[in-house]
């Protein structure tokens, strides 16, 4: 059973190795002539006049929070969907009740304008 997962572990190792080797090859085969202009952050010909780690729109943060709620819900739905035949009608209706509660929350955040990007 568990040895079925061995190829996956090796596969991940090989993938990391290939990525690493490609980066190393670029470093070894390419030239390396740094100068201060080349190494400054890209800014359309300007000197950077502000720190790039600036304030950003709070809506990105909001999206991240909403994502956690919905992603957790998907994590609940996965095992439920697999055994749906065995748990039958009762299982189906209980999950619909759960989804219904979540949909009420979804409608609330929709009406509150949490999903607006004007």
């Amino acid at each position: 059973m568990l040895q079925n997962y061995l190829p996956i572990l090796i596969f991940i190792g090989v993938a990391v190795f290939i990525g690493g080797v490609m980066m190393m090859m670029g470093r070894m085969l390419g030239p390396h002539r740094p100068d201060s202009e080349k190494l400054s952050p890209y800014e359309c010909g300007f000197e950077a006049f502000e720190d790039s780690r600036m304030k950003f729109d709070v809506r990105y943060y909001l999206v991240a929070i909403l994502f956690i709620i919905f992603d957790l819900e998907i994590a609940f739905l996965f095992p439920w969907a697999v055994v749906l035949r065995e748990i039958g009608m009762f299982g189906f209706l209980s999950m619909m009740l759960f989804l219904g509660i979540l949909v009420i929350g979804f409608i609330y955040e929709w009406k509150k304008g949490a999903l607006e990007w004007e």
Binding site: M23, M25, G26, R27, L29, G30, P31, H32, R33, P34, S36, K38, L39, S40, P41, S52
Partner: peptide, 12 residues
């Protein structure tokens, strides 16, 4: 071509 190009790592 990409292999022979410099990998630039910005100072910051």
């Amino acid at each position: 071509k990409l292999m022979l190009k410099e990998i630039i790592v910005p100072t910051n």
